[in-house]
Write a protein that binds this DNA or RNA. Structure first.
Lengths: 107, 107
DNA sequence: AGCTTAGATGCCTTGACAGGCATATGCCGG
DNA sequence: CCGGCATATGCCTGTCAAGGCATCTAAGCT
């Protein structure tokens, strides 16, 4: 069921929430249990769980169960989709930057 | 006044709105008047104007006045901020990809 | 000056979503 | 099998943003 659902979720909408970006930033360093995230983010446990649910359904994170803990872990695939949207723009400023450098070299 | 304001606007929140991304995608090809955007996006004129205001105040676009037209134009600086957030993640999948390639090379 | 076109703004309604709190579920140890 | 810890979920409420419509402003034309 989830495997279908997350395709339709708007990645940017998910990232619009600052707390969710902070969760990703935290998971970037190391995978993490919910409790650890609660401590790090200073947010209530239900709030964190809800954000994790959104991130999970959107494919930004995956989780596995270890005893009574859930260990969450970054899934990079979805972020690449965001990066894909950005790519053409990045090409633009890279060429602009190149042009600028060439301009400065002439002086 | 605006020069101060747009620093505090959350870039991701601005991009969360699909119509606004479509506007940027359109402006990426060429600068554009409001009317042209209305035609392209099939959205009401007030709606487009409001999105443009958000984009403008967030620093994603700039505009100049030509007769009774307003020509909007992409401003890449703000997108680079988004890209900056993404950069550490990109490094991650690039190294993962490298690792995968090395792995495949061995076979 | 009056008319028209391009665009911006204001008001209103509606829908989505975040957080708080209470509660349910799942898993462990004894 | 029971109590307790870790996490998930439901319900409620407040907030905020998007779109529709009407209106205002500004610039050009005759």
């Amino acid at each position: 069921m989830e495997h279908i659902a997350w395709v339709s979720v708007d990645a940017f909408a998910v990232l619009a929430e600052p707390s969710r970006r902070r969760i990703l930033d935290t998971l970037r360093r190391a995978e993490c249990s919910v409790g650890e995230l609660v401590d790090t983010l200073e947010l209530s446990q239900p709030a964190v769980s809800k954000h994790l649910r959104v991130l999970r359904e959107a494919g930004f994170v995956s989780c596995r169960t270890v005893a009574q803990h859930r260990i969450y872990r970054l899934d990079l695939r979805r972020l690449r989709a965001v990066d894909d949207w950005l790519a053409p723009y990045r090409r633009m400023w890279e060429t602009h930057l190149d042009a600028l450098e060439r301009h400065l070299d002439k002086e």
